[in-house]
Amino acid sequence: MRAERPSLVDPWPLRIIAGLLIFAFVALFLALPLWTLFAQAFAKGTEAYLRAIDEPAAWSAIKLTLTVAAIAVPLNVVFGLAASWAIAKFQFRGKQLLTTLIDLPFSISPVISGLVFVLLFGLQGWLGPWLRAHDIQVIFALPGIVLATVLVTFPFVARELIPVMEAQGTQEEEAARLLGASGWQTFRRVTLPNVKWGLLYGVLLCNARAMGEFGAVSVVSGHVRGRTNTMPLHVEILYNEYNLTAAFAVASLLALLALATLAAKAALEWRGRTEIAS
């Protein structure tokens, strides 16, 4: 629509210069890295690629990554739903502060997100001696990896849901309540259908980050091969051993996950736009 307004059309020389600059930038910083990734993964043929993935250490890394995401994502979904309900549907003092605190993990270096749990649960940490006395391992084990992942992905679901719930207001829920629905019924039958796409969007982004997190997990994992290595950490080890084909093969799985996430995200955005239009 806008492009049809003659005075808003950029003159051709401007378009060509800017277009070339954009093309070069996108090729250099987005397309070529992605191409390198798959080219390296398949550099020695499909067989070498499959062999690199079908290997015990790779499988255990895949399993651990899926386990961590399967624990961390639902936890953040429950939190995200609770936080967005409280923040979007009610007025209370300190709301702004609460929202800022929920966003806090986005502005922290991932390394710090791992470090804080080492300081709490590590051997020299606050709870370290007690945990040791009771023979519970948090750091260099699954609980530590899950905690670090939860902290890093903390804001994703809440952040997507709060604006959606705020835009929706409280009238529909109030009507449901006045018509005799219980609180849980109101939430399940009225609120949830209204926010489902926003929720799915948040879950997608949360999951992508949970499976791909490197810095925070690297600090708490201890890099025990076959035991506490997630997929990104496994990629690092293979790369540092100069086993490039294997490193890029496992990395390509993560890249496929990223591309699938982007495709689903685009589909959701398109759906949201058509729903608003209709």
């Binding site: 987005l30 791909g212 993560l254 982007l262």
Partner: peptide, 18 residues
């Protein structure tokens, strides 16, 4: 437009080695 979000979605270690 969708591709612009690649750095958000791609795990940092994967971007690093590429």
């Amino acid at each position: 437009d969708g591709f612009v979000d690649l750095p958000f979605a791609l795990p940092t270690a994967v971007a690093g080695i590429a």
